[in-house]
């Protein structure tokens, strides 16, 4: 029998090996000094790993408190105010999109066209900002934050997506984690265009609630 890997030695030390294999490994250990020495080390290490991992009581108590708060709340909050805001935003967006005199946005140019085109004057971006309705303000803010001269062909601009706080293209618990850590004062403020979800000008617990609900909906 060839020498035994550490995972098999660990299994042997925990009596998890099947009978025949266990016999073969034990027989090998009788003949192989190196494996026998390694077996002793692996057993001591595994034992130490189990012993050296305790849980700090203070931390656990704090987390218990946080969990009690979570359990005290309804799982899916049906808050009237956020729902009304969301409905109003949706209606405003529909009205804006249905308006006949609204200039149609140009189709997205190819990267080569962006590279060849002269830089977009900043003033034009500002005029567009004024024409927009409040409902699409978040999107326009993103437009305004994109200086045309920064549009380089090798770095295609990607619009910020409200809720995608960590900018990974997904809206998930990782975004909520980033937001929570900011509220705990442990990270710098995220971009309001993606984090100020209720549009009240502040990144606060209200935004966390909205994000949590959106994640729960599987957005």
């Amino acid at each position: 029998m060839t020498c035994v890997t550490n995972d098999v030695l660990l299994d042997l030390s925990e009596r998890r090996l099947a009978g025949e294999l266990s016999d073969r490994v034990e027989t090998h250990l009788l003949d192989c000094d190196a494996c026998r020495a390694r077996f002793g080390e692996i057993r001591a290490i595994a034992s130490a790993v189990r012993r050296c991992t305790g849980t700090p009581d203070a931390l656990l108590s704090r987390l218990d408190g946080g969990m009690a708060e979570i359990l005290a709340r309804p799982r899916r909050r049906r808050l009237a105010v956020p729902a009304a805001i969301a409905a109003a935003l949706a209606v405003a967006a529909l009205v804006y999109l249905a308006a006949p005199d609204r200039p149609m946005p140009p189709p997205p140019p190819a990267l080569s066209a962006i590279a060849a085109a002269p830089p977009l004057p900043r003033a034009e971006t500002e005029i567009r900002t004024e024409r927009r309705s409040p409902a699409s303000e978040a999107a326009v803010v993103t437009d305004a934050r994109r200086p045309a001269e920064d549009a380089t062909p090798d770095l295609p601009w990607r619009p910020a997506r409200p809720g995608d706080v960590n900018g990974d293209g997904l809206i998930d618990v990782a975004d909520r984690l980033v937001l929570a850590r900011y509220l705990a004062g442990r990270t710098p403020a995220p971009d309001p265009a993606v984090a100020d979800l209720n549009g009240d000008g502040a990144i606060d617990v209200g935004d966390v609630q909205i994000l949590t609900r959106e994640i729960a909906r599987g957005r």
């Binding site: 991992t53 656990l60 987390l63 218990d64 984690l177 850590r181």
Partner: peptide
């Protein structure tokens, strides 16, 4: 709770991060 917190602590080697992950 205890086994999961132990796992988070050993994975992240940082009590605050482990607490955050545990709670999340």
């Amino acid at each position: 709770k205890a086994p999961l917190l132990q796992f988070c602590l050993q994975m992240l080697r940082n009590a605050e991060d482990a607490g955050d992950v545990f709670q999340e």
